[in-house]
Design a protein around this nucleic acid. Structure first.
Length: 844
RNA sequence: GCGGAUGUGGCGAAAUGGUAGACGCAGCGGACUCAAAAUCCGCCGUAGCAAUACAUGUCGGUUCGAGUCCGACCAUCCGCACCA
């Protein structure tokens, strides 16, 4: 074979330019064709593309290109989740404007994506930091406000007194601000909220309709929403605490109310706070409770502790029945009512507590036969009938729950309630680089939305970051406006929206982007819901839940006719890499990047100093462990197709993919193998090669099915098999045909190579516009099959027969097979199992 | 603790209840070459000269036949969590 090497340096750019010029991937160009919306989660413009992006977008690209080859009208867009903290941090550290920093990052990342040859409709590119996007978001926010789904409320936030800003929970480390190191304070601020809890039930029920979502994500959302059905009721106190004379509690087990032996409240409960004013011991106990962290390990080892207030609560069904009231470290103020009734026999936590403080433990639910058995150290949480429970005795748990709720409601001391873990979504951020919240505060009119004609409320450009705090708030003029309602001087809202709002509707804006409104309903509905959404598992809860909520909210106000934005979700695995490190005498670890390391037969040493170093675990690529490989350098060396091919081969897409030098080398070898093969067309060869014809059609069929199922690694394996078969085949018309078909089969994965070959073969047009080859069903089946011959289920021999050979013939052939006869050792089978075209099993 | 997933050669992995390990990586042997790279041919689960035996986390079960189905357990990863 001739010396022939694929030259990506020339080919990649040539075909990327050709696709641009032909507008090959522009959506909406195939009227009447089935529509496919393929979307990968849009990136934050941090500055550089990383391998995780490359893997994510390679997968989506294969699907998008394949759908085009099936004749679909494909929407495959790209944009930028461009607001957020890192731009402001860069502004503070590097004295650049967040806008300039972000836009230049977008430019360089876009160039990187282009170099990978993704089939994206760049005409729909959007960045959430541009007024034409966030202005429409402001309009939607006002619409939701007018529909009563947006409100303002005082709420406690993490306040960093040095940086003068609100911090997210994730930015508070050991009670201190992550940047300033200052002790974080709890502050009450007036914040904007979205009423996601109004849709809690719908969001929960909707999960059942999302059959093409990973079970894992659905479960995570279900837990996050956290629905608990039960009874909220009040205990009377035996003595009032100030003005308070009763205690509200919530229980999912009202049926066990006659098993209650204490009540407990959180350290921050109003009753506890009131008592602590005159009770120093309680005050210090409460302080201890607050200090305890919420880290998993701490909770695990945390002992259940309580402080007896000396007060009692009175049983709602029996005014003579008093139970002690404790302040307990395991009761959370921000769940339910911050107070619980303790039923030790049927709740493990209550049981532990009761044993410690010598409280009664009485069984009130029993499985049949267990009625008289006392509960020892394990609470009984199973089903059964009520015992020791007066009028509830003999009822099932379910019936007893209903009965208690019925009586509580009739007697007026309680109500059947549902409690959710899900909280309303606080969207206020005291930040500059975000969507301005389009409201004006007027002393006479209150909170007034900015009139739609005055949108967008644009961020001022002339801001400074040399002092802490919100630049919008200290801007000399920006916030001073007249009230749109009464015309008097008023104050603009200076908070901006959480960036998760920006990503809650970008997929709709991709589908339709008129300049005068957020989207056109009919056009958006023609593409949505997204047919295949691909992204990382890290967005399983927040982004995916917010987007589901936002879509439902838009449906609620009549702007769109669907509840669920993503019909099918796929969460891909991470890109990982070996780590390299050395440890010095003082135990300090130094990490080395892959290019600083030379690998030799399972050992590693530094390139510079030949110093032996250790090979660590294979973990997600991260800057701190220095196990990062920059896509640009790899594209430079091997071209886009080899990178794409490697990203799709080896590991199943939902699992982690370990990047390795050997792996990318292998992908590069394959690209060249195909390339050499494509140059080996012998147009004059004649004759039929039935086996190769079959292999070709089985591959066309199999690869299509694998791509549909996102099983890219299997599609890759099938293409290797076909390549092997073509290489081994003798020249024939069949072989020539197979080689001429091959570019089409690899086109979704290695599009530049495919175009180059297509052109070289003198085929018409771009392969980007070509159709996936048709399958001849007759060629999918073999005419000869290998039959396994088993004796007692163990393989002893094989025979090759015509497909469809009848059972009797197979049986006699099997008995005659020499190795089978030897295994039988003269015995006569007492049973023969024949599975046509598969096997014969001789049972003795 | 609860929930979800995973467990198959040296490694990444395939396998409608029907020939376990396709395909790739690494490795080994050979060809070409002055030599190297590239490429090509062959071998490659373990033990054994071989016949064969043993092999899909462990232990049981169902079946003519189990990586696959059922039951118990073990390990690893991920998520959530004093959620009343």
């Amino acid at each position: 074979m001739s010396e022939r090497r694929f030259n990506p340096a020339a080919a990649d750019g040539r075909w990327q330019a050709a696709w641009d010029k032909a507008e090959s991937f522009k959506a909406g160009q195939r009227p009447g064709a089935p529509k496919s919306y393929v979307l990968e989660m849009f990136p934050y413009p941090s500055g550089r593309i990383h391998m995780g992006h490359v893997r994510n977008y390679s997968m989506g690209d294969v699907l998008a290109r394949f759908r085009r080859m099936q004749g679909h009208d494909v929407l495959h867009p790209m944009g930028w989740d461009a607001f957020g903290m890192p731009a402001e941090n860069a502004a503070m550290e590097k004295k650049v404007h967040p806008g300039g920093w972000t836009r230049s990052n977008i430019a360089s990342m876009k160039a990187q994506l282009k170099r990978l040859g993704f089939a994206l409709d760049w005409s729909r590119e959007l960045a959430t930091c541009e007024p034409d996007y966030y202005g429409q978001e402001q309009a939607l926010f006002i619409d939701l406000y007018e529909a009563g789904l947006v409100y303002r409320k005082e709420s406690a936030v993490n306040w960093d007194p040095v940086d003068m800003t609100v911090l997210a929970n994730e930015q508070v480390i050991d009670g201190r601000g992550w940047r300033s190191g200052a002790l974080v304070e709890k502050r009450k601020l007036s914040q904007w909220f979205l009423k996601i809890t109004e849709f809690a039930d719908e969001l929960l029920d909707g999960l059942d309709t999302l059959e093409s979502w990973p079970e894992k994500v659905r479960v995570m959302q279900e837990n996050w929403i956290g629905k608990s059905v039960g009874l909220q009721f009040s205990f009377k106190l035996d003595a009032p605490v100030g003005e308070i004379d009763s205690l509200e509690v919530f229980s999912t087990r009202p049926d066990t109310i006659f098993g209650a032996s204490f009540a407990a409240i959180a350290a921050d409960h109003p009753i506890a706070l009131a008592l602590a004013e005159t009770d120093e011991a309680l005050a210090s106990f409460a302080e201890e409770c607050r200090r305890t962290g919420t880290a998993a390990a701490e909770i695990e080892t945390q002992e259940k502790k309580g402080y007896d207030t000396g007060l009692s609560v009175i049983h709602p069904f029996d005014p003579t029945w008093k139970m002690p009231l404790f302040v307990a470290n395991f009761v959370l103020m921000d769940y339910g009512t911050g107070a619980v009734m303790g039923v030790p026999a049927h709740d493990q936590r209550d049981l532990d507590f009761a044993r410690k403080y010598m409280l009664p433990v009485e069984r009130v639910v029993a499985a049949s036969g267990d009625e008289a058995k006392p509960v020892h150290n394990e609470a009984y949480v199973g089903p059964g009938k009520l015992v020791n429970s007066r009028f509830l005795d003999g009822m099932t748990v379910e019936a007893a729950k209903a009965e208690v709720i019925r009586r509580a409601e009739a007697e007026g001391w309680g109500k059947g309630t549902t409690v959710w873990r899900l909280r309303d979504w606080g969207v206020s951020r005291q930040r500059y680089w975000g969507t301005p919240i389009p409201f004006i505060h007027c002393e006479s009119c209150g909170v007034v939305p900015v009139p739609k004609k005055d949108l967008p409320v644009v961020l001022p450009e002339d801001v400074t970051f040399d002092v802490p705090g919100n630049p919008l708030d200290r801007h000399p003029t920006w916030k001073h406006v007249d009230c749109p309602s009464c015309g008097k001087p008023a104050r603009r809202e200076t908070d901006t929206l959480d960036t998760f709002v920006d990503s809650s509707w970008y997929f709709i804006r991709f589908a339709s982007q008129p300049s005068d409104k957020p989207f056109d309903r009919a056009e958006a509905e023609s593409w949505l819901p997204v047919g295949q959404y691909i992204g990382g598992i890290e967005h399983a809860i927040l982004h995916l839940l917010y987007a589901r909520f936002w879509t439902r909210a838009l449906q609620h106000i009549g702007m769109i006719g669907m509840a669920e934005p993503f019909a099918s979700l796929f969460t891909q695995g991470m890109v990982t890499h070996e780590t390299y490190f050395s440890t010095d005498q003082s135990g300090r670890t130094t990490w080395y990047s892959p290019e600083e390391v030379v690998l030799e037969g399972g050992t590693a040493k530094t390139r510079a100093g030949n110093m032996p170093i250790e090979i660590g675990r294979v973990i997600k690529m991260s800057k701190s462990k220095k196990n990062v490989v920059d896509p640009d350098e790899i594209i430079e060396r091997y071209g886009a197709d080899a990178v794409r091919w490697f990203m799709l081969s080896d590991s199943p897409p939902e699992r982690d993919l370990a990047w390795s030098e050997a792996g990318i080398e292998g992908a590069w070898r394959f690209v060249n193998r195909i390339w050499r093969l494509l140059g080996d067309v012998d147009g004059s060869a004649t004759g039929e090669d039935k086996a190769l014809d079959r292999k070709l059609h089985q591959t066309i069929d199999g690869v299509a099915k694998d791509i549909e199922a996102l099983s890219f690694n299997k599609a890759v394996a099938k293409l290797y098999e076909l390549t092997n078969a073509i290489e081994k085949a003798k020249p024939s018309a069949s072989r020539t045909n197979a080689i001429r078909t091959l570019p089409l089969l690899v086109a979704p994965m290695t599009p530049h190579l495919a175009e180059e070959a297509w052109a070289e073969m003198g085929r018409e047009g771009l392969i980007a516009d070509a159709m996936w080859p048709a399958v001849d069903p007759a060629l999918l089946v073999e005419d000869e099959v290998t039959i396994a011959i088993q004796v007692m289920g163990k393989l002893r021999d094989t025979i090759t027969v015509a497909k469809g050979t009848d059972k009797a013939t197979l049986e006699s052939l099997a008995l005659a097979a020499p190795n089978a006869a030897r295994a039988l050792d003269g015995a006569t089978p007492k049973k023969v199992i024949v599975v046509p075209d598969r096997l014969v099993n001789l049972v003795i």
